[in-house]
């Protein structure tokens, strides 16, 4: 009986809404009541350091490429020891949608999300974070990883000195 079903369907929602009116709302009254955030909550982004204390970011541009709203811009540069780093790194939180794609793209685990969501402000320019605002003094969520110890090019260790590498070959050696 579709007609009966339709009629029933027209009245049922009224009952549901009426019943809900007398339930306790689930809203968290934010400033007075602190929300309990999940462990993997995605909010303000940081740039972490590797266990040796050096910047993890190698300015590979993958985060800016992954960013769907183009809020990351940066410029890579080369340090004296051949380490690639970000000369400047700008993240516009006024534009960021906190999707976390940059952290997924980051091959060196440098850019990470934190649960600090209280970013609102009145001046949009204050939401534009430069590298010094983003850089923190700890390793973030993965404390052990050091990109340059895995890469296979000599920056932290001498060439051929990383785990899983043999020392440089002698190219003028003709022995079999």
């Amino acid at each position: 009986m579709p007609l009966l079903r339709d009629i029933k369907g027209s009245f049922q929602p009224f009952w549901v809404t009426l019943r809900n009116m007398f339930r306790k709302p689930v809203t968290v009254q934010y400033p007075e009541q602190r929300p309990e955030l999940p462990e993997r909550y995605r909010a303000r982004l940081i740039l972490t350091r590797d266990p040796d204390g050096a910047e993890r970011c190698v300015a590979c541009y993958l985060c800016s490429a992954a960013c769907p709203v183009d809020c990351i811009s940066l410029q890579a540069a080369e340090a004296e020891d051949g380490r690639r780093y970000a000369a400047w790194f700008r993240l516009n939180f006024a534009r960021c949608i906190f999707c976390g794609l940059c952290t997924e793209a980051c091959p060196t685990l440098a850019i990470q999300v934190t649960a600090d969501f209280e970013l609102a402000g009145r001046d949009p320019l204050k939401l534009v974070y430069e590298k010094e605002d983003l850089l923190v003094d700890h390793c973030g969520r993965q404390p052990d990883y050091n990109f340059y110890r895995q890469t296979g090019i000599g920056v932290t260790a001498p060439r051929g000195g990383n785990p899983g590498e043999s020392p440089p070959v002698d190219v003028k050696d003709l022995l079999p």
Partner: peptide, 11 residues
């Protein structure tokens, strides 16, 4: 080597 992030050819 797994150094694509610091390699200019990457991409």
């Amino acid at each position: 080597p797994h150094d694509c992030p610091v390699c200019d050819e990457g991409g």
